[in-house]
Measured scan of single mutants.
Amino acid sequence: ATNIVGKVKWYNSTKNFGFIEQDNGGKDVFVHKSAVDAAGLHSLEEGQDVIFDLEEKQGKAYAVNLRIK
C-alpha cells in the first residue's frame, strides 16, 4: 500500500523504532530508524502527521518512504 496517512503514536530514538497510527483505522505500523534516516529526519515526534508506504516482510508490516505531511 502507498501514500498512507497517519500520526506518530510514539518513537524511541534510543531504541531506534516506534509506531505510526494509521488514520484509516488499520493496525499500528512499525517504523525503524532506517526509514527515519532515509527521510532525512533525525527523529519523529509523538502526534506528528506523516505519509508512508507499507511493506511486509516475514508477515510483519512496516513503514517505508516516510515523509512529513
Results as ranks from 00 to 15, higher is better:
1 A>K: 15
3 N>L: 06
3 N>W: 06
4 I>Y: 08
4 I>P: 02
5 V>P: 06
5 V>W: 05
5 V>I: 14
6 G>V: 01
6 G>W: 01
7 K>G: 02
8 V>F: 03
8 V>E: 00
8 V>D: 00
8 V>S: 01
9 K>P: 00
12 N>E: 06
12 N>A: 12
13 S>I: 10
13 S>Y: 14
14 T>R: 11
14 T>Q: 14
15 K>S: 08
15 K>E: 07
15 K>M: 15
16 N>G: 12
16 N>L: 07
17 F>N: 02
18 G>P: 00
19 F>P: 00
20 I>E: 00
20 I>P: 00
21 E>W: 08
21 E>F: 15
22 Q>C: 04
23 D>E: 11
23 D>T: 12
23 D>N: 09
24 N>H: 11
24 N>D: 14
24 N>L: 14
24 N>Q: 09
27 K>T: 09
28 D>S: 06
29 V>T: 07
30 F>Q: 02
31 V>E: 00
32 H>N: 05
32 H>M: 07
33 K>E: 04
34 S>G: 12
37 D>I: 12
37 D>G: 12
38 A>H: 09
38 A>G: 14
40 G>I: 05
41 L>R: 11
41 L>Y: 13
42 H>W: 07
43 S>F: 14
44 L>D: 01
45 E>L: 07
46 E>W: 12
47 G>P: 02
48 Q>E: 08
49 D>W: 13
49 D>F: 15
50 V>K: 00
50 V>F: 05
50 V>D: 00
53 D>T: 07
53 D>V: 03
55 E>M: 14
55 E>F: 15
55 E>L: 07
55 E>S: 11
56 E>I: 10
57 K>D: 12
58 Q>S: 08
58 Q>P: 07
59 G>V: 03
59 G>S: 11
61 A>Q: 13
62 Y>T: 06
62 Y>K: 09
63 A>N: 00
65 N>D: 04
65 N>Y: 09
66 L>F: 02
66 L>R: 00
67 R>G: 03
67 R>Y: 06
67 R>V: 08
68 I>M: 09
69 K>I: 06
69 K>M: 11
69 K>L: 07
69 K>Q: 14
